[in-house]
């Protein structure tokens, strides 16, 4: 056998000889250890509690207390996105859904859809890691409460837009992390509290599919308009 340690008895707890001694030793130990434990708990009456009182009684928003590396809700800076589809390919869950097409008038590639289903996303960070252009990244936003499941799909492209042809170095500076998402966040849950969710609204909403490029000549209308909520929502950050 592998080295087996013989039963050792620690010096301060030597088993007592005789039952009478054991009897009184038990009483002494029970009282003294309880006394010891109570002195520990008593000291906590004078020590600072750990709790912070989220969400109202705090000095600054929790988002600002989180480290930069925090993996919160994903956001895309469409000015830097080249629609290379790396993120869509690497996502283990298929929660990123990108569609692009060629505009027949200008001949440029246009991205018609960049949806991220944050209800499906597991915040693993593989997509952000694989993005070579710093377009897709995690923010420190985490309060993504919504009232209906279709709101969990973030539409980063509201209407078709040209895909950038610039090299990484020439691209506009990455917008401040979280600024794009913060504009969309009012849509999280607080937009139409009275709205009743119907299963058909979800069925009409896009289901993440792996086939991305479609060659439709007419730029598709934002699919999310099927959901009545999306029509009058504040539009996400548009191209300058």
């Amino acid at each position: 056998m592998v080295p087996t340690v013989p039963p050792a008895v620690s010096p301060h707890r030597r088993p007592p000889r005789g039952t009478v001694r054991a009897y009184f030793r038990n009483i002494r130990l029970a009282l003294s250890t309880a006394f010891d434990g109570m002195s520990v708990t008593m000291s906590y009456m004078f020590r600072r509690p750990l709790t912070i009182q989220y969400p109202d009684k705090i000095d600054k928003p929790v988002q600002e207390m989180l480290p930069e590396s925090y993996r919160g809700v994903l956001e895309v800076d469409m000015d830097r996105c080249t629609v290379c589809l790396q993120c869509q390919k690497i996502c283990p869950l298929g929660c990123i859904n990108i569609e692009s097409c060629k505009n027949p008038e200008t001949g440029n590639r246009e991205v018609t859809k960049f949806d991220i289903d944050i209800g499906l996303c597991m915040y693993c960070g593989l997509c952000a890691e694989t993005c070579n252009f710093d377009a897709l990244d995690h923010t420190r936003e985490f309060e993504a409460t919504v009232t209906t499941p279709d709101q969990m799909i973030l539409h980063f492209v509201e209407k078709p837009r040209e895909v950038t042809k610039l090299k990484a170095a020439e691209m506009p500076v990455r917008k401040h992390k979280g600024s794009i998402l913060q504009k969309m966040i009012p849509a999280f849950g607080r937009r139409h509290p009275q709205e009743v969710w119907t299963p058909t609204a979800y069925a009409a909403a896009p289901v993440p599919a792996l086939k991305a490029p479609t060659a439709t000549p007419k730029p598709a209308a934002p699919v999310a308009s099927a959901a009545p909520s999306a029509a009058d929502s504040p539009t996400p950050e548009q191209a300058p």
Partner: peptide, 8 residues
């Protein structure tokens, strides 16, 4: 109990 457990 809260204070003893480092809570509020």
């Amino acid at each position: 109990a809260g204070r003893i457990q480092s809570r509020i």
